[in-house]
């Protein structure tokens, strides 16, 4: 992970004919964390999807070095299979072994739930399962969209610890949140500052 990098250069995002933001530049190297802030609907999730390459940038360039792991509001785990198998599908695609899943489930305190079908999990447990999928992926760049939503205090601590471990190992974390997150010394990107003027 030591050569992980994420560089945004003058990025603008157009959605539904509306320019959400423009001129966002960001350079992150190994061990760097960034926090996207701003009120609802301002384009935090869109910026994360642009970073992930799922949305094309309307202007500007994005350079990524290293694999990407992302969570958003969608679970992307098969509902009818036990949690460990649902995570195992993604670990197989990532080339990660069973020990990576075990470590990730332990990091999110999910080990006792490994044989429970995903559909039986509560909202907070599902959120932790998504984070476990990110941890198990072994990707260098984590893009977390509202990772603390639905988590209790103890789980937010687990999230903070997982993020700290990932940064210490030379990874990159970009998270979008409207609430404070336990991420040490992040680069704060307030998207309010990049709004396009009306009428453009």
């Amino acid at each position: 992970m030591s050569d992980a990098a994420l560089r945004l250069n003058d990025v603008a995002c157009l959605r539904g004919g509306r320019l959400l933001f423009r001129g966002v530049s960001l350079t992150l190297g190994p061990g760097d964390g960034a926090l996207l802030t701003g009120p609802n609907g301002i384009g935090k999730s869109s910026l994360l999807r642009v970073c992930a390459g799922l949305l094309p940038a309307f202007a500007g360039t994005i350079e990524r070095t290293g694999g990407i792991a992302m969570t958003d509001e969608r679970l992307a785990l098969d509902m009818d299979v036990p949690l460990v198998k649902a995570l195992g599908f993604w670990a197989n695609l990532d080339g990660a072994g069973r020990d990576a899943i075990d470590r990730a489930m332990a990091a999110m305190a999910l080990t006792p739930l490994s044989d429970i079908p995903v559909r039986m999990l509560s909202t907070g447990q599902r959120k932790r399962a998504m984070l476990a999928r990110v941890i198990a992926s072994g990707a260098a760049i984590w893009l977390l969209d509202e990772p603390a939503n639905g988590l209790d205090t103890a789980s937010i601590d687990l999230l903070g610890r997982a993020v700290a471990t990932h940064l210490a190992a030379g990874g990159i974390v970009v998270s979008a949140s409207h609430q404070p997150l336990p991420i040490a010394a992040p680069t704060i990107i307030a998207i309010d500052a990049y709004l396009a003027e009306d009428g453009e």
């Binding site: 992930a52 390459g53 799922l54 694999g67 990407i68 792991a69 992302m70 958003d72 969608r74 679970l75 992307a76 785990l77 993604w90 695609l93 990532d94």
Partner: peptide, 14 residues
């Protein structure tokens, strides 16, 4: 598509 599986697969470069 609705559960995000397609996006997760795309993220893995598949």
């Amino acid at each position: 598509r609705d559960s995000g599986v397609l996006d997760q697969i795309a993220l893995r470069g598949i």
